[in-house]
C-alpha cells in the first residue's frame, strides 16, 4: 500500500490514477462498502466536487467534516443518487456500492435506495401519522402485515430514542411533533427497513444534548451491522462516533484517515486549522 502524499494537492491527485490514492484508514476487515473513484460533480457550470477518491469500510462509521458549503451533502447525496432530482447536474467518475457501479446505465435506482437509509439535514416527515411515517419504507416494499409493521415501528422508534415520547400517539400526525422529535422520527424511518448502509446528513443539528447522546449511542450500536456515513459539524461527535474521518474543503477531499490519526496528527495544515477551530 502506498501512502497519501503529505500535501495531497488536488493537481497531484488529479494526475495520479484512482487506485493509487489510498489513505491510511482503520479497516473492518470486510472490505469497502462504498468506493468513490475520481468523482467530479457539476451543478451546471460550477463544479462542486473535484476528483474525490475514497473508500468507506463496511460495518464502520465514516465521518465527513468540513466547513459549510464544501460539498459534504453533495457527496453524501451522490451515494444514493439523490442528486438525480436536480436539473443540469452532471457527474464524472464512479461510485461503487457493494461491487455495483451505481452510475452505470440501467442501474435500478429504486433497488439501490432500498438498500440505503438516509437522514436529511432538515427533518422531512410526511403528512401522515407517526406510525405511517416510520413504516413507510416497508409499505413501499409492499409489506402490509400489521404485526410485522408494528414490530418494525417499535424497534425503529426505540432505536432513535423517540419511542417513549410517541408510543401513545402513533396515529397522530407526524407534523405535530417538535423539530427535534421530527428529526428522530426521520432517523427511525431511515433504519426501519434495516438498510445495509445508513447515510446521515447532520442528524443531530436540531437535537438537544440528551437526544444527541441517544443518537450517538444508536450509531455506536448499529456500528458493525450497518455501514454508516455521517456528516457532522461537531468535531467531538466525529471523534466520538466515527472510525474514519474525511476532511473536505472547497469540494476537494483534503485528508482521509483513521479518526484518531486525523484528530491527533493531521497531515495537512488545513485539516489542522479546521479541527482546532482556526477557520471554517
Amino acid at each position: 500500500m502506498t501512502t497519501a502524499t503529505r500535501e495531497a494537492p488536488a493537481a497531484q491527485v488529479k494526475e495520479s490514477s484512482t487506485h493509487s490514492t489510498v489513505y491510511h484508514v482503520a479497516e473492518s476487515g470486510l472490505g469497502a462498502a462504498i468506493s468513490i473513484r475520481d468523482f467530479n460533480l457539476f451543478y451546471g457550470e460550477s463544479q462542486a466536487l473535484y476528483n474525490v477518491n475514497m473508500e468507506m469500510q463496511r460495518g464502520m462509521v465514516t465521518a465527513l467534516i468540513g466547513p459549510s458549503g464544501c460539498g459534504k451533502s453533495t457527496l453524501l447525496r451522490s451515494l444514493n443518487r439523490m442528486n438525480d432530482l436536480i436539473d443540469n447536474l452532471s457527474i464524472k467518475g464512479k461510485v461503487v456500492v457493494h461491487d455495483n457501479d451505481i452510475y452505470a446505465p440501467g442501474v435500478d435506482v429504486i433497488a439501490l435506495r432500498k438498500r440505503m437509509g438516509m437522514v436529511f439535514q432538515k427533518p422531512n416527515p410526511f403528512p401522515k401519522s407517526i406510525f405511517e411515517n416510520v413504516v413507510y419504507p416497508l409499505r413501499v416494499e409492499g409489506i402490509s402485515d400489521k404485526a410485522m409493521l408494528e414490530e418494525a415501528c417499535e424497534r425503529a422508534l426505540k432505536g432513535s430514542a423517540l419511542w417513549n415520547e410517541v408510543k401513545d400517539r402513533l396515529n397522530e400526525s407526524a407534523l405535530g411533533l417538535s423539530g427535534g422529535q421530527q428529526q428522530r422520527l426521520c432517523i427511525a424511518r431511515a433504519i426501519a427497513a434495516e438498510p445495509e448502509i445508513l447515510l446521515m446528513d447532520e442528524p443531530c443539528s436540531a437535537l438537544d444534548p440528551i437526544a444527541t447522546a441517544k443518537v450517538e449511542e444508536l450509531i455506536t450500536e448499529l456500528r458493525g451491522q450497518f455501514t454508516i456515513v455521517i456528516v457532522t459539524h461537531s468535531m467531538q461527535q466525529a471523534a466520538r462516533v466515527s472510525d474514519n474521518t474525511a476532511f473536505m474543503y472547497l469540494g476537494k477531499l483534503i485528508e482521509y484517515g483513521a479518526t484518531d490519526t486525523i484528530f491527533t496528527v493531521p497531515k495537512d495544515r488545513r485539516t489542522e486549522d479546521y479541527i482546532t477551530g482556526r477557520f471554517g
Binding site: 429504486i110 432500498k114 437509509g117 422531512n124 410526511f126
Partner: peptide, 27 residues
Amino acid sequence: VPRSIREGSLACGASKWQTIRSVVLPH
C-alpha cells in the same frame, strides 16, 4: 410541495408514482 419531502420518500426506495400517490398528493 417541498422538495425535501419528495426526497425523503425517494430515499426510502419509493418509486416516483408511489411518492406522488402517498406523499405529494396528500400534501
